[in-house]
Computed example of a mutant assay.
Amino acid sequence: MSTNSSAYGSSSVRAAGSGFAAARSGSARFTRPAQLDAALVDQLAGGVDPQQLSDMSHTTAASLLDRVHHTQDPQVVDRVLTLVEHEGVDLVAELWSSAEPESLPGVLWRLYMLRTWMRRNRENISRLWRLGEPVATTASAIAGVDQAPTADDIARTADSILSGAFTGDFAVALERASAFCSVIAAGLVAETKRRQEEAQRLGLTALETQAKLANSGASHMVKTAKSLSGTAKDFRAGAGLWREGRLE
């Protein structure tokens, strides 16, 4: 199986602790997003103290979720779904990327970054799914993914999970995201083991094996698998908190 290691840590999406974060573009200027208040954008551009930023992150996350739940307008749903693409990742990152994993803005940030990562690496992820979930299990049913998904299936699943968070049961969407992350993490582990076994069959020395694995991106895959496993736990915890009415 040919697997591009760059898919496990693209230049635009990197692991941050146990979640997803986006690489910053380097620009200090923000464009005004259609979904957020102009005054808020001005405040961010001018600099905000940490407490104000924390308050805004929680307020904007709750407002965005509430707005879509109450309107259910397909156009609004589409704009929210593509918030990162159309409004710029810098502003969204400024608002939500520093939020605690077990908070509403923290969970929404991870959902948006998961969707971005899935859509940009859909072909490799479809192969990893088949490695991590060779036979259908409860994870397949929870995530809503077929046993042998295509790249297009992965893209549709990415959209479905995020849109479901806004238009359906938020906890169910988080559980779907968690199951998906767990399976892909298992796929990465399986691929790493396959490469290790391949190196051993070639009769390479320990040093040669280490070099071969490094060149193949195996060590990076292990790190990504750990990050995905951590993110899966964050999503599960978020689902539990949401059901208890404590995800804020």
Rank of each mutant, 00 (worst) to 15 (best):
L83E: 03
R120H: 12
W242P: 00
T137E: 07
L111V: 08
V172S: 10
T224I: 00
A158M: 10
V135P: 00
R110S: 15
A177F: 07
D78C: 01
Q52T: 14
I184S: 01
D169W: 03
V76K: 09
L40Q: 09
N124Y: 02
L128G: 01
W129G: 07
S54A: 14
T82I: 00
A15E: 01
T59G: 01
F166C: 05
R119A: 07
M118V: 01
L131I: 00
V145L: 15
F235T: 04
S6L: 13
E102T: 13
E191T: 08
H86N: 14
A225P: 07
V84S: 09
R14G: 10
S63N: 12
D234F: 13
V77G: 07
L162E: 03
T192R: 12
G144V: 05
F20I: 09
V76P: 00
L128M: 13
A23W: 02
V145S: 06
P33K: 06
A179H: 11
R243M: 04
T209Y: 00
G26E: 10
V80S: 07
V145F: 11
D66G: 04
D153F: 08
A165C: 12
S57T: 08
A179R: 10
R119F: 00
V48E: 07
S18H: 06
A15M: 12
S6Y: 13
